[in-house]
């Protein structure tokens, strides 16, 4: 038996090495094909863009206004998520909340609902005629066709990704490390600063990147509650409607340029840092 097992590990599989090599090549080819299919839309975009058209579209008066609006709204939405979502994520990760499964399900709801439906429901929740809308009015805010409404819609679209992602990142930090830091004399804010955050940072970074991409690309809820002021996705939609597909492509490129680099950098950094911090467990009798 032992000899057979060794033989199997050494590569003597039924069917012969040639067949297995062929199967490996087919598998690799399949993986590459899926990768290419996923990249297909980006390729199509780059193939249909002409620099002269891009230059003309982006140099038109006011063409970059929606970009600035989107950057501002997404930055504000992300800042709010960091301030409001991080404690919730932390408490979820460390099981500090009553009925944790219900809380987690609640965070999942906006993620599971189609963004368009979120927009519709936001109108019923915070529209000008609702109690929430009237309360917002008291502080001179409106959740309908305003910059605030844009931020709110982006918050709903990106929020679940952020909270669940940060919770997973914090959960990946061994609570024993936090306990050790506390036993060595650190109060919890210092434990968070010296241990939890540095170790959760790769996961938090990739979560921030994904939340950024979700926020800046938010469209479904935005078209209902924040048609104005135009953000980038709305600009693409309106241009498509009014001038056709070729005219919208330059703005799609702009959206990709502002949405993609941060996620890609975040994911690459996270992968590198996680590999470096991998510790093999000790084998000590239990």
């Amino acid at each position: 038996m032992a000899g057979l097992a060794l033989g199997e590990r050494a590569g003597h599989r039924p069917g012969g090495p040639a067949l297995w090599r062929l199967a490996g090549l087919v598998g690799l080819g399949g993986c590459l094909l899926v990768w290419l299919v996923l990249l297909g839309p980006l390729g199509a975009l780059l193939a249909h863009l002409r620099p002269s058209v891009v230059g003309r579209a982006l140099s038109a008066p006011g063409a970059l206004g929606p970009l600035v609006t989107s950057l501002e709204a997404s930055a504000l939405a992300l800042a709010l998520l960091v301030v409001l979502g991080t404690p919730l994520a932390w408490a979820m990760a460390r099981d500090r909340l009553p009925a944790p499964r219900i809380i987690e399900a609640g965070v999942l709801v906006p993620l599971l609902m189609p963004p368009l439906v979120i927009g519709l429901l936001l109108v019923f929740l915070a529209g000008p005629a609702t109690p929430v809308g009237r309360a917002l009015g008291l502080v001179h805010l409106s959740a309908s066709d305003t910059f605030f409404a844009l931020v709110l819609a982006e918050l709903y679209e990106a929020g679940p990704y952020y909270v669940l992602g940060v919770a997973a990142a914090v959960r990946s930090v061994d609570p024993e490390l936090e306990a050790q830091a506390a036993l060595l004399g650190d109060p919890w804010p210092r434990v968070a600063r010296r241990v939890t955050l540095p170790l959760a940072a790769p996961g938090v970074a990739s979560t921030l990147a994904v939340a950024w991409a979700r926020a800046i690309g938010a469209f479904g809820a935005v078209i209902i509650v924040a048609y104005h002021p135009y953000g980038l996705p709305m600009q693409i939609w309106v241009t498509l409607e009014e001038q056709g597909l070729p005219a919208a492509l330059p703005f799609a490129l702009v959206l990709l340029v502002v949405a993609l680099p941060l996620p890609l950098l975040g994911l690459l950094w996270a992968a590198r840092t996680q590999r470096a911090a991998q510790v093999e467990p000790l084998e000590v009798p239990g």
Binding site: D174, E176, A179, Q180, L183, L184, G185
Partner: peptide, 29 residues
Amino acid sequence: PLRERGIGMVTQRLGLFPHLTVAENLGYG
């Protein structure tokens, strides 16, 4: 609170801080 107990502990899993150097681990407390 744990920080006020004055306890030095070595657990079976050790709980070393993987992002800190040996000197930083030794000097943590």
